[in-house]
C-alpha cells in the first residue's frame, strides 16, 4: 500500500464537495495533478491543494492506494464516494455522504460522520469510530434501492432512517439507532446493540432482510406479528462474524441467545423479521 497524506489547512465556512478524495481518482496521478483536482465550494471550483497539503506516494492502481486525511474534516463531503478499492483513513470527523455509493475497499473514520454516510453503498467496508448521523446506508430520495452490499460498522449511535430501502449488505450499530431504522427494507441485515427507536422496520417487505435488536427496543409497530422465541442457528454465524471479522466483542454473549421473532410489516404484506434478543 502506498500512502498519500492529505493534511487539512484552511476550510471555508460552507462545505467542500470533494469526491476526488478517492483511491480510484488519485491512483496513477502525480502529486501536482492531485493538488489540482477539482473540488466544489458552493458554486465555485477550487483545487484540492487549496484546502489540503498533499504529500506522500501515489500508487498505479487504486487497490494499492491508501489515503490518510490527517485531521478532522466535518465539512468535507463525499470522501470516498464511489470508491471501488484501496483504503481511506480519516483521523477525525468526516462530512456528509462519506463512502456514499462505494463498491469496494475500506474506509475508516476515527470519529463522527454526518448524514448519508454509506448511502446506497454497493460493497466494501465503512467503519465509523464515533456517531453517524441520519440516513446511514440509506437510499437517496426518489430511489427504491438503498444499500446493495458491503458493511457499515458504527461504533457509536446512528440517526434516523438508518438502512432505508436496504436490499443487501450489513449495518452494525454498536450504540442506539434513531426512528425508522430499516424503513422500506427489502433484504440485508441491521444489527443494533443499543436502543432501537420507534417505527423500526416500517413498511419493510422482507426478501430475507432482518433487524436484530440486541439491546432495548422503544416500541414495535403493531403491524409486526410475534411468531416464536427460539435460538436461530443463523444468528451464530452472524455473531461469530461480528466478533471475529469486525471485532464486535459484545457479539459473543449473543451466540446462544434466544430471540423473539416478529414478522412484518404486514401493512405492506411484508415478510421481514425483527429479532429481539431475550435478556439472559
Amino acid at each position: 500500500m502506498k500512502e498519500l497524506t492529505l493534511t487539512p489547512t484552511t476550510m471555508p465556512k460552507i462545505p467542500v464537495e470533494a469526491e476526488v478524495i478517492c483511491p480510484d481518482v488519485v491512483a496513477g496521478r502525480t502529486l501536482e495533478e492531485i493538488r489540482g483536482l477539482k473540488v466544489y465550494v458552493g458554486n465555485s471550483v477550487h483545487g484540492l491543494g487549496e484546502f489540503f497539503e498533499v504529500e506522500g506516494e501515489v500508487a498505479d492502481k487504486a487497490a494499492e492506494q491508501m489515503i490518510v486525511i490527517d485531521g478532522s474534516v466535518p465539512t468535507v463531503k463525499y470522501i470516498g464516494a464511489k470508491m471501488s478499492a484501496g483504503s481511506i483513513l480519516v483521523r477525525g470527523c468526516a462530512g456528509m455522504h462519506t463512502g456514499a455509493q462505494m463498491s469496494g475497499g475500506e474506509l475508516s473514520v476515527e470519529e463522527n460522520t454526518r448524514n448519508w454516510a454509506g448511502a446506497e453503498m454497493r460493497g466494501g467496508l465503512l467503519r465509523i469510530g464515533g456517531d453517524s448521523r441520519n440516513q446511514t446506508g440509506a437510499a437517496y430520495r426518489g430511489s427504491s434501492e438503498g444499500m446493495m452490499g458491503g458493511c457499515i460498522l458504527v461504533e457509536g449511535d446512528a440517526g434516523f432512517e438508518t438502512g432505508s430501502f436496504m436490499r443487501r449488505g450489513m449495518i452494525v450499530v454498536k450504540g442506539d439507532v434513531g426512528p425508522f431504522a430499516g424503513v422500506h427494507m427489502n433484504g440485508g441485515e441491521i444489527f443494533v446493540f443499543g436502543r432501537a427507536a420507534r417505527r423500526l422496520g416500517a413498511e419493510a417487505k422482507g426478501n430475507g432482510g432482518f433487524i436484530a435488536c440486541l439491546g432495548e427496543v422503544e416500541s414495535l409497530l403493531p403491524t409486526y406479528v410475534y411468531d416464536t422465541t427460539y435460538v436461530p442457528t443463523m444468528m451464530k454465524l452472524y455473531m461469530r462474524q461480528l466478533k471475529e471479522g469486525l471485532g464486535v466483542l459484545k457479539a459473543e454473549s449473543f451466540l446462544d441467545a434466544p430471540f423473539r421473532r416478529y414478522r412484518g410489516d404486514v401493512a405492506v404484506g411484508g415478510n421481514a423479521e425483527i429479532l429481539i434478543a431475550e435478556k439472559l
Partner: peptide
C-alpha cells in the same frame, strides 16, 4: 439468507422452518 455481499465474499443459505425450529 445472504451473507457478506460485496464485502468479504458472498455466501447464500436457506432457512427452512421445521417443527423443532429452523
Amino acid at each position: 439468507m445472504r451473507m457478506d455481499d460485496g464485502w468479504v465474499g458472498r455466501r447464500r443459505f436457506w432457512r427452512i422452518p421445521v417443527m423443532e425450529g429452523e
